[in-house]
Amino acid sequence: MGVLLLGLITGVAFGYILQNVGVARCGCIFNALTLKDLKAVKMMLTAVAVGSLIVYPASALGWVTVGSKTLYVLALIAGGGLFGAGFALAGYCPGTALAALGAGRREVLAVVGGGLAGALAYAVVYPVLEPLLIRPLNFGRVSWPDLLGTNPVASGLVFAGLLLIVVWLLDARDRSAAGSKAPAAGTATPERS
């Protein structure tokens, strides 16, 4: 019961953040994919950097096990490609769609409905796909420190530093792009509901 309550509270904070940043709005994701405005990308990379700066020192103190994700190359390439196509079509990812639904964007029911249909379809075809895409080229839970033989904590902290530099460079790019189009900036479109 405590775990379920913890999940609910974490989720409320998650949805609150997604809606407040504006990534729970298809335009923000879409503009990131067309490279017009990288706000969503900058936010995600900042989140990874901030998370790493806490999680890796905590793991050094033995407070948390960092873990990893399973490296099955074929399913990752196929799944990532399908996700990318769906991301552009929907303008939402599985989490932001739910925050948008809560925020009252009823049209997002189509995305969530499609997601539930996709989940059912995946369960149906899983026995066929598993031997084709998941079992071959499966290397288990491999992380970069495993592969490179580096210290995980040091790697995590260096990675966080690199991400912050990348984010700063992306922001400089966005600011110069916004500056060159200054007259159009902030133009509201009140006719859109």
């Binding site: 994700k69 399973t70 099955y72 399913a75 990752l76 196929a78 799944g79 990532g80 490609g81 399908l82 996700f83 990318g84 196509a85 769906g86 991301f87 552009a88 079509l89 929907a90 303008g91 939402y92 990812c93 599985p94 769609a97 049209e107 997002v108 189509a110 995305v111 969530v112 409905g113 499609g114 997601g115 539930l116 249909a117 996709g118 989940a119 379809a121 995946y122 796909l129 895409l133 998941i134």
Partner: peptide, 16 residues
Amino acid sequence: MFLGGFLIIFGARLAG
């Protein structure tokens, strides 16, 4: 939007 939703979940479950 429906097709996009279908693909993001199918793709995400395939990729884990």
